[in-house]
Structure formats: structure tokens, C-alpha cells
Design a protein around this nucleic acid. Structure first.
Length: 362
DNA sequence: TATCCGTGGAT
DNA sequence: TATCCAAGGAT
């Protein structure tokens, strides 16, 4: 293993070359300000960075637009209803981010006078802000020379210095290298340039080294092993689970209604509205037991859904409202006309489609 | 350190 | 179709 010890003049060259490339190829994004202009509103930097955690730029656009329109600053978001924020986040995934987003906004208002602290150390103490996000906000919004390390940067750096240690063991080594090449001038642009490079030319498969501004400095390219880096440990296979969801319907004042529950605040889809289900989880199939005895009609077909660590085959059973509503699990009647505004996570959104399709076939 | 936590696009 | 992967954080 070659120790990563970039020499200062080379480090400076890397930043200089990369920033020059960034100035010519920068993407205009709603949360980004052009190179050489004042940094964006820290609220927008924070919001975008949280949304972008493990999420593609394309998926974030619409949510960023919606959130900034509904809640333009920390004060507005801190004052929002939890249910509204969770519903607005529905479909974006990793729902603990939305819960922590609210916690963070309220902490900023209650403890920081409505403004983000300006150092990555202080930022990292807030809910939902880890090492990456703290460094990214510090660098992009406040010009701090912080080492911003995400999966893109790990890939670029692993190749630049031919780090052959597999991830995640290579993380400390890679972080040290990022600290060594991050410039004091324009650290925010440098971080975004590194991420852009990883998201474009320095891609996982078929990197376009021919067009890369850092090609002449890249040890992996010189050795002809760029595409093989970074190395990663093999992932475990996903278990396949089965579960049931219960579609309980009645005639309400404004047309048909279904019974929705609120999932517990932690765990899978925590805090989100949902259909009642039979308790399926990552390590266990559901128990198939209906919430109350009724004339359940089991629908044909299933909802196939893939989570990060398991796959679920969800089946659906339908019934009319029970005579005795006290047997319903905690929840609320929800008009089918405004089901879109319930903010169901994708799994249950798919299930609702299946149920509604089945109704129309009757 | 390892596991849990969504979703949709690319290949 | 199956697999991999993304601007990670919390526990």
C-alpha cells in the first residue's frame, strides 16, 4: 500500500486545475450560486444538502422547489406542522431525514437565533448533520476550508492516489488526502467541483479519463486501474419478505374514504401516514392477521417493492368499514379524492393504486 | 464497526 | 431481470 502523502505543490495544482475546469463546466442548480459570486443562502444550502444525502440531483429538484416555496426560511419551517412536512417529503425516502430536518430547524431557531452556526464543528452538533453535511455547509455557505468527503469524492481521490484499500477501511486514508488537497481559497467551489467530477467524468463505470482535468495527476489512470477503484466489500443478499396491508373503506360525507394510520416515529417509514398492515419488517414476514374480523376480500396481485436491505411482496385485502369503529387501529378517515395529499410513502402509494384499480374492475 | 433506513435511474 | 448506486446519518 502506498501511503497517501500529497506534496504541497501537487496539491495546489490539483485544486487549480479542478477549479479552472469547474469554472467552465459548472452546472446551474437552484441551490448553487455561480463561481465568483456571493455564497447562497445558508438555509438553501442546508436544505439541499440534506435532501441530497444518498439521493440523486434529479430526484431532489421538485422537492427543493416545493419546500422553499412552502417554507422559505428556518423560522417558517420551524413553525410548520410535523404532518405537513412529512407529507411534503413523501416519496423522497429516508424519512428520518425529514424528522431531523424539523428538529434541526427548531434547534436553529431556539438556540441559534434563526441562523446556522458558521463552523463545521458546530454544524455537526445539529440533528441530521453528519460529517459530510457539516463540512459541505461550512465550505459552501461560509467559506470554511473543510474536507468534504462524499461517495463521489471518495471515488475521485481513491483513483487520484491509487488507494487500493477497499472501502470502508480506506476512509481515513481518503479523508487525509482530501484535507491535503482542499485549498484555503474557494473551498466550497472545490468541494462542488470534486463532486461534479465524480458525478460526471470520474464515474463508477467507464470513467472518461481522456477528458479529465486531473488526468496527468491521476495515479490510477497512470497504472491503468482507474475503473477498478475504489474497491468495495461485497454486499449481503437481500432477504425476500411477504406482508399484508388492509384497505378499509367507507362512504363518507365527501365520497369514499379509507382508513390511514400514522406509523411510529422510528423504524421503517417512521412518522409517515400508511395503510394498516400486518407487522412485516426487514427480519420478519407479517403475521397475516387482520386487525378485526370482517369479510375480507383478498385481492389478486401484489405490490413488489425493494428497500435498501430487503424486498417486500405486499398483498392487499379489502373490506367495508366495521360496524364498530372502536376496533380500528389509531388513525383517520381520508377522502380518496385527496389521497395524493396524504403523503403516503411509495410502497403504500403503489398499494393504493392496486386497490383502486381493483375497485374499478368490480 | 455494522446495521438500519427509500427510491428510482442506469446498465 | 438483476444488480448497483446516489451530495449519509443515527445508533
Amino acid at each position: 500500500m502506498v501511503a497517501v502523502q500529497p506534496r504541497t505543490q501537487y496539491s495546489g495544482d490539483i485544486a487549480k486545475l479542478l477549479l479552472a475546469h469547474y469554472d467552465r463546466h459548472v452546472r446551474a442548480l437552484p441551490w448553487r450560486s455561480p463561481p465568483g459570486t456571493p455564497p447562497p443562502d445558508p438555509y438553501r444550502v442546508w436544505l439541499s444538502e440534506v435532501m441530497l444525502q444518498q439521493t440523486t440531483v434529479a430526484a431532489v429538484f421538485g422537492y427543493f422547489e416545493k419546500f422553499t416555496k412552502l417554507w422559505p426560511d428556518f423560522a417558517a419551517l420551524a413553525a410548520a406542522d410535523d404532518a405537513d412536512v412529512m407529507a411534503a417529503w413523501a416519496g423522497l425516502g429516508y424519512y428520518s431525514r425529514a424528522r431531523n430536518l424539523l428538529k434541526c430547524a427548531r434547534a436553529v431557531v431556539a438556540e441559534h437565533g434563526g441562523q446556522l452556526p458558521k463552523t463545521s464543528v458546530e454544524l455537526g452538533k445539529l440533528p441530521g448533520i453528519g460529517p459530510y453535511t457539516a463540512a459541505a455547509i461550512g465550505a459552501i455557505a461560509f467559506g470554511e476550508r473543510a474536507a468534504v468527503v462524499d461517495a463521489n469524492v471518495e471515488r475521485v481521490v481513491a483513483r487520484l492516489f491509487a488507494v487500493e484499500t477497499p472501502l470502508p477501511a480506506a476512509k481515513p486514508e481518503i479523508r487525509a488526502a482530501v484535507e491535503a488537497i482542499t485549498p484555503a481559497d474557494r473551498p466550497g467551489d472545490f468541494a462542488q467541483a470534486m463532486m461534479d467530477l465524480g458525478a460526471s467524468l470520474c464515474s463508477v463505470r467507464a470513467p472518461q479519463c481522456l477528458l479529465c482535468p486531473l488526468q496527468s495527476h491521476c495515479a490510477a489512470h497512470a497504472a491503468g486501474i482507474a475503473e477498478q477503484l475504489p474497491q468495495k466489500l461485497a454486499k449481503k443478499a437481500k432477504p425476500q419478505r411477504v406482508g399484508m396491508a388492509w384497505w378499509i373503506e367507507r362512504e363518507g360525507a365527501d365520497g369514499r374514504e379509507i382508513w390511514l394510520v400514522r406509523r411510529p416515529p422510528h423504524g421503517m417509514l417512521g412518522g409517515m401516514r400508511a395503510l394498516p398492515d400486518d407487522g412485516w419488517k426487514a427480519r420478519e414476514d407479517g403475521d397475516s392477521k387482520p386487525p378485526f374480523p370482517a369479510d375480507w376480500r383478498y385481492l389478486d396481485g401484489e405490490v413488489a417493492h425493494v428497500f435498501t436491505h430487503f424486498s417486500l411482496s405486499l398483498r392487499l385485502a379489502v373490506t367495508a368499514a366495521p360496524v364498530d369503529e372502536s376496533c380500528l387501529p389509531d388513525g383517520e378517515w381520508w377522502s380518496l379524492k385527496r389521497l395524493d395529499s396524504a403523503g403516503l410513502p411509495t410502497l403504500f402509494s403503489k398499494a393504493a393504486k392496486l386497490a383502486i384499480r381493483a375497485r374499478h374492475q368490480d
